[in-house]
Design a protein around this nucleic acid. Sequence first.
DNA 1: CACGGTTGGCTAATGATATTAGCTTAATGG
DNA 2: CCATTAAGCTAATATCATTAGCCAACCGTG
Lengths: 185, 185
Amino acid sequence: MSPRAGLSPDRVTALALEIVDRDGPDALTLARVAESAGVATPSLYKHIGGLADLRDRVSVRVVAELTGRVRHSVVGVGGDAAVRALLRAYRDYLVEYPHRAGLLVNPAASAPAGELLDVVLAVLDGFGLAGSAAIHAARTLRSVAHGFAVLQAGGGFGYPEDLEETFRLLADTVVTGVRQTYLAS
Amino acid sequence: MSPRAGLSPDRVTALALEIVDRDGPDALTLARVAESAGVATPSLYKHIGGLADLRDRVSVRVVAELTGRVRHSVVGVGGDAAVRALLRAYRDYLVEYPHRAGLLVNPAASAPAGELLDVVLAVLDGFGLAGSAAIHAARTLRSVAHGFAVLQAGGGFGYPEDLEETFRLLADTVVTGVRQTYLAS
DNA sequence: CACGGTTGGCTAATGATATTAGCTTAATGG
DNA sequence: CCATTAAGCTAATATCATTAGCCAACCGTG
């Protein structure tokens, strides 16, 4: 193991994320990351500040990746369909990676979280909303997307029966609610 | 410390919850609980199964307490006002105890989570909703309440400016959305 | 091509923690 | 009043994170 292992902060973060995805956030230990990197545990400190720092880095990466997914889901789509696509992308992400749910809320990830907000604001702009109304509506959309996705990923709904139908109705509820509340004319 | 300390599973759980509230979930260790109980760490195993079991017990207690708050908030209230009260009670609970956010989604707490669902269903019944439509609407309400509360508690919105206004508009959005989606006549 | 600094590995040591095993003593019930 | 049970204890083990200090590999410069 003496020859250089070609590690880097990004590489360490990627290995950490694999462990989280496989065995959950509690399984993320420096010992396991070091093992999967083929390196002794203290060597990791040459690349990261410690376990807390590594957790923050994983959070940043996860929020950034989610932002990318959401952004991608709404290109070329507008109006109601864009809102639905956004909600679905958020949910699909946590269905694919359920163990990442707890990593999405972290003050250390405020930069990519801001980008996510920008994406939502762009969707709402195409929806005819701007200014402080758009801010409130964006927070609402994020709340709905986050709440449903987290609860589904964590098994927070009792039986998962008809969750797809619940999701469709939730999207209907939000779309019509936002229209009525912010665009009442 | 040799004389009996008068511990019990409930007492241990209560001490654990105090630690979570003061210093966050990561600060919950058996060593700290034992210290605050005036007991050696292994003695705790006479009352709980271990750290994981203790976490589950804390989750159960938290979800049960939240359910009580929500239930209390809607007695004597009906229709739109009940939905608003329910959302507000959920949010207020996590504003008061922000460190409990992560404890609300836990398969071990499915029993009190089911009770929470029953409370929401009762509100929706007074709203004129029953059957599978009520189930979908209840999941929607839980998603919205949970998402907003978790994000606020965790600082997930950038600047907390005008969050009260966001919350009011979120309630409007949900109430009108549910009406339109489930009670379109 | 050599060589010196920087970087990325290592081992050793320390301290916190969870958990198990086995002992001892206080409470309790017949 | 005694026996059983429950609740505490100490000791031991294993896993971790973290710090300190050492050494070898890499890289740019002369």
